[in-house]
Amino acid sequence: MIKAIINYFKEIFTACRTLITGMKVTGYYFFHPKEIITQQYPENRATLQMFDRFRGEVVLLHDENNEHKCTGCSACEIACPNGSIEIISKKEIDPETSKPKKAIDKFVYHLSMCTFCNLCILACPTDAIKMSKSFEHSVYDRSKLTKVLNKPGSKIMAGIKE
């Protein structure tokens, strides 16, 4: 009988002790706020830096003369599993040889269909495209997610061949 009573109180005591053990951890972090690693987004937008390999969205690289490296070979379009890249090409007269040459008219990129698998970047033979670090993609209208990546008036860099 007495044993049962002792056991009863013992159980209550151990139960309380396990709860306090857990509370100890919580209390430790309450008094050590420096160990908390929470980032205050979007307040830290100015300093927030993504890693180099971060896969945000596909961009076509342009230099300061508004020239890019895309030859319109469609390797990225074939590599893409979801059809998020569409290359619309045109025929252009090469000024050096005065022969017709294939060039891109529009590099259409459907961001809404992209799964960020990086296969297009690996497929590109001229390193014309790249994954950018931007990640804030939300817009109010879905049609804004279809982008034309080549800037107006841009042309291919000299010396880039398929």
Partner: peptide, 19 residues
């Protein structure tokens, strides 16, 4: 994120090795 480029859907493997 630093090595594979993504946090969750990494797609770091390719047939034959790594990306």
């Amino acid at each position: 994120e630093e090595t594979c480029g993504a946090r969750l859907t990494m797609n770091y493997n390719v047939p034959g090795g790594l990306m």
